[in-house]
């Protein structure tokens, strides 16, 4: 049996870590402090597992783990943090959506266009200021499969993909929390909507279409979109502010 020692090491990993390695995805809701065990297990991955097939997806280290760290900082240890991540990539059968055939002319024989929707990171966090943060990072990919015949009669297939990434963040404020439009205003590529609910709560939503070229920039872009929601709620005035204004 091949990879016997590696397989045993894999069985000793944190359950979510193992699921991430084997299935490239996991979904769990745990108290904030319990995610530390997963991060520690992922940190030691390279020492335990060397098999290439069982490597952790790049986005786990570049985006998922940093997001866990950031959200843990803003949460009480017992508050629940839900994470659903799917790092299999967008071109998977269960992520495919609308598909159609485009009209063609020779030498093109057929063009099939398929759209894939890949929500690869979905997070829900109960923050310590009483608000609830929901975040979704969704890749939408248009894939065209082009079949053409050259003059020698050989048939060739070509595939073109065009990705787009959307980051959507929603913050549900606790009752009575004041909202004020910040200055300077958000840049044009970042859309913010404020919704006043009938139960007295305010919901802030921010969304943006960001670049897909560099995965290492994704974290900063997610945090910029999310951070915009926190600019709309000015910090509470303390004794310092009160006395200074007298």
């Amino acid at each position: 049996m091949f990879w016997r020692k590696q397989r045993k090491a894999l069985e000793r990993l944190h359950p979510l870590h193992r699921q991430l390695v084997e299935e490239r995805r996991f979904s769990a809701t745990l108290p904030s402090a319990d995610w530390t065990a997963l991060v520690a297990s992922l940190a030691a991955h390279g020492q335990a597992i060397t098999r290439r097939k069982w490597q952790v997806p790049d986005r786990a280290a570049s985006t998922v783990v940093p997001m866990l760290r950031v959200l843990q900082e803003d949460m009480e240890p017992g508050a629940f943090l839900g994470v659903t991540t799917d790092l299999r990539g967008p071109v998977v059968s269960d992520k495919s959506g609308e598909s159609r055939t485009l009209s063609v002319r020779p030498p093109i024989r057929s063009v099939r266009e398929t759209f894939y929707t890949d929500p690869w990171l979905v997070v829900r966090a109960e923050l310590r200021d009483g608000s609830v943060l929901e975040l979704a990072v969704v890749d939408r990919v248009r894939q065209r499969r082009i079949v053409k015949k050259n003059r020698n009669g050989k048939i060739k297939t070509k595939t073109k993909s065009k990705p787009a990434r959307a980051v959507r963040a929603t913050r549900r404020l606790p009752k009575g929390m004041a909202v004020a439009e910040p200055a300077p205003r958000a840049p044009g590529w970042l859309t913010v909507r404020v919704q006043q609910k009938e139960n007295g709560r305010t919901v802030l939503r921010a969304s943006a279409k960001v670049s897909t070229h560099d995965d290492h920039r994704t974290l900063g872009q997610i945090l910029t979109v999310t951070g915009e929601l926190f600019r709309w709620t000015p910090p509470r005035a303390s004794a310092a502010t009160t006395r200074r204004s007298r």
Partner: peptide, 22 residues
């Protein structure tokens, strides 16, 4: 000028009743 405009007193505003004044 947005971020550099924050100083220690601004950060104290996050602490109800705390900070250097209290």
């Amino acid at each position: 000028t947005w971020y550099p405009s924050f100083d220690q007193n601004d950060r104290d505003a996050f602490e109800p009743g705390g900070g250097d004044w209290a």
